[in-house]
Design a protein around this nucleic acid. Structure first.
Lengths: 121, 121
DNA sequence: ACAACATATGAACATATATTCATATGTTCA
DNA sequence: TGAACATATGAATATATGTTCATATGTTGT
């Protein structure tokens, strides 16, 4: 690992490991991909939404069921379901007035479980 | 799936599927576990931190390397590394003035990849 | 058509958080 | 010891976000 003597103006440092930076830069996915990935994890990063997803592992549920389960009002749940829906993590079916939500992705459980493995270490 | 007629005060709904709610309630992990899980995903839910983790998949790097790679100032990177360190996602070793960061968890790549699979669908 | 109801949505508010700036800490080398 | 440097950190600011409230939408049954 060679330490090249190069001044990089974007940071306040003078001596960086230029070879490492160049090598890593080549392996980085597209900016947009990483942005989307962060947006996805942001959706997982709220305890209300995590609880909703966790509940839906077990069974499809209507908005009111979820609100009762989590002791939260219907509006809050509805707003969060919209976020989950936009992230394509849940889908819904309508039956009269009632809207049933369920999971819409195989990866959700896997992401969830790997996260849990880290937390339980 | 029976629709019991029960008024639940915590939400504004009158008729919920009480059996479903009770069954799901039993399977839910502890409140604290789900909170910790959300906190973990919150750490993944920022594009700067995602980029840092992604870079560290390839090689350990010092703070200045990362700042140069991402064209961000040293302070911002240092703050974010602290968040990653607190979440036990990265570890560091010191060599003189230079601090080298690297990944500290086997799950990180798996969580990352499953997320990527969802994004690339 | 109307009442009752489940759900959705917009606005407002409070809180959380990412970045920047200034500066502190701790190491190396002369 | 002191200058140069890499990194860490506290305060400030701007922005993002979760929840609540009020209300809209759309469906069912009378």
């Amino acid at each position: 690992m060679t330490a090249e003597k190069t001044r990089i103006e974007s940071c306040s440092c003078s001596y960086i490991h230029e070879e490492v930076v160049m090598k890593v830069r080549e392996t980085m996915p597209q900016e947009e991909t990483l942005y989307d990935l962060a947006e996805l994890f942001k959706v997982f990063g709220d305890s209300t939404r995590i609880k909703i997803l966790c509940a839906l592992f077990e069974s499809e549920m209507c908005v009111c069921d979820i609100a009762a389960l989590l002791s939260m009002n219907q509006s809050a749940i509805s707003h969060q379901l919209r976020v989950l829906k936009q992230a394509r993590l849940v889908k819904y079916r309508k039956e009269g007035k009632v809207v049933y939500y369920s999971l819409d992705d195989d990866h959700v459980k896997q992401i969830f479980d790997h996260g849990l493995a880290h937390v339980n270490e």
